[in-house]
Design a protein around this nucleic acid. Structure first.
Lengths: 341, 341
DNA sequence: TTGAAAGCGCTAACAG
DNA sequence: CTGTTAGCGCTTTCAA
């Protein structure tokens, strides 16, 4: 690969001049500019961005840490971030932590060595305090948290209204006549899981319905736990007429459990889900779902991060953006009919 | 952020010694090593990998170019690549091209400037010759193509056996008694789409069945085209008893079309798909599908790429790895019953 | 405008 | 074993 020196020699100018035509920061006479451009063309020259990064102390690299790209919520998120980043000439380095804090720590350390200009982070749930996050922020690496807000750390974030989304959803079930509404919740250590459960309780309380702890089944957001809890839930006496499942993965497990037990949705059981799969229309039945603006979370996350990086936001003032959800009503709840008494 | 100089000063050693304890390449006495490590700890020092990259002419960065992370085939692919890369201390920079060649060109140029050590590429289909690929290879940047092999370029690749997978699938339909089997194919410009169609024809031919061009519907791998072609297909007279859809996205469109037209699968129509969605168990009906080892394609792609980078493979000899598919039989075809005559 | 030169933070001879 | 030093390829003063 050719270097700036070779271009300079071939074009008979100094390396400074080559640099000037490339960056465009300083005016260069048309004659020289043309000679330089010709040389660049002929040698298929691609300026060494590593050297540039070292010099200008800016890599235009962003780290993106998520839990698992294989979880259908994340591709949209990542795509939104990538599009926005690329638009501003930033590149994204992505990582999966599988929600493990040790992975997160290691990745963050790697990213600091790489001198990324900023980090987009979907935090791994963790009971212990987040010193690795604080260290990173203190070292001057801006972090924007997506989807989840880590407790006890002052950090910018873009999230969705989990509580409100869940509440709307439960209100729909209540107004459809349901009274015994079970919930398959996420791990309580995850703030947004907790918020969804809170929305559930809030809706009940607003409607004057009692909260029954026996109707709360706490899972871990994975398919398998949805399946196991689904089995337990279906065995409850009397069986709830509706379930609210707090994420898509668990919903799929739950649906499989129902199928196995010969419980038909929506005939025997209304099901509503937090998270709207992009492929819902291929499901039977189509699921009533709280839809999150995942693409927008990623896009806005980068937008905010870049403003931080460029110092456009007031230092010391954390920004929290919260996006709205939408409730999509479909047959998994609309198709349920209460038996005539 | 602190530098190697500051560590050296604090530990009272030369910067070379600091470098030596970090890289571990040269022996350092325990006393000095300890002092250095203490200094690193205290200053929360993270070696500047940018500077290192410049010096050693190696970034340990891999570019990964896919068409769209939002397409459910790719997350697995990317995950496999990322896991394998990270295991070897390489990082992945990912891009979406939406199958547009202009994007691909631009991305490749960016990656060359970034001095990535290698590129994993899912090529955008293109009629024109791939000079940008050739240039990149000629410049010494190893490329491994995944999933698709660009025609006319000598390049390593990891793909799956599209032809064989399709053939197995059609053979299953034939042995189930189907004779009028339609196919919703991918764009013929895409080699793997062409291969799937070829597998279809091969199976027919092997079974001594005639090939009917009217039963071939060429789409573009997107949901919408599956839907449109589905409508046309269902209107054919006499209606085929089975359809083979050449990717998951089109299958979903096709299923929607069937639902709208009141054609029930598998009662009225058997459906088989190339691509097995990870969420098939949530679908009704469960789909008979040709499953691709996407994770493995990504993983093996990185494995091969790293061997190239490290010069372990014979130069000038291109390597083509082709992975097997698996046919998963499910109710979308098994549930079909031929009417008694 | 153009060019000479210093230096970004690190590694790798090389000398001691 | 430890330290000195010359770059890696670029940007950016500063003088001319």
């Amino acid at each position: 690969m050719s270097t700036i020196k070779e271009i300079a020699k071939r074009a008979n100018v100094s390396i400074a001049t080559v640099s000037n035509v490339i960056t465009g920061a300083v005016r260069v006479s048309p004659a020289l500019r043309e000679r330089v451009q010709k040389a660049i063309e002929e040698l298929d020259y691609h300026p060494n961005y590593v050297a540039r990064s070292l010099k200008v102390r800016q890599t235009r690299l962003l780290g993106m840490i998520i839990s698992d790209i294989t979880n259908p919520f994340f591709p949209q998120l990542v795509r939104g971030a990538e599009d926005e980043a690329f638009r501003h000439n930033y590149l994204l380095i992505t990582f999966n932590t599988d929600d493990r804090v040790d992975r997160e720590k290691r990745v963050l350390s790697v990213l600091r060595s790489r001198r990324v200009d900023g980090v987009l982070l979907v935090v791994a749930p963790s009971a212990t305090e987040a010193t690795h996050l604080k260290n990173t922020v203190r070292a001057g690496v801006p972090i924007v948290c997506l989807d989840r807000i880590p407790p006890g750390v002052e950090v910018d974030s873009v999230t969705v209204d989990n509580r409100g989304g869940a509440r709307k959803c439960i209100e729909h079930l209540i107004s459809s006549g349901h009274r015994r509404i079970a919930v398959i919740a996420g791990p309580r250590a995850l703030p947004n899981a907790a918020e969804r459960l809170q929305g559930y309780r809030e809706a009940l309380s607003l409607a004057g319905l009692p909260f029954d702890p026996d109707l709360v089944f706490e899972g871990n957001f994975r398919v398998e736990s949805g399946y196991q809890l689904g089995l337990r839930l279906l065995a409850a006496e009397p069986r709830p007429s509706a379930v609210f499942v707090c994420n898509d993965m668990m919903a799929m497990g739950m649906l499989r459990a129902a199928e196995e037990q010969g419980v038909e949705c929506p005939r025997d059981l209304a099901v509503a889900v937090f998270d709207d799969l992009p492929f819902d229309f291929a499901f039977r039945p189509h699921l009533t779902a709280v839809s999150q603006p995942a693409y927008e979370v990623g896009r806005k996350g980068v937008e905010l991060l870049l403003r931080r990086i460029e110092g456009l936001e007031t230092a010391g003032e954390r920004i929290r953006i919260c996006l709205e959800t939408r409730l999509n009503l479909r047959e998994s709840t609309l198709g349920f009919k209460f038996p005539a008494r």
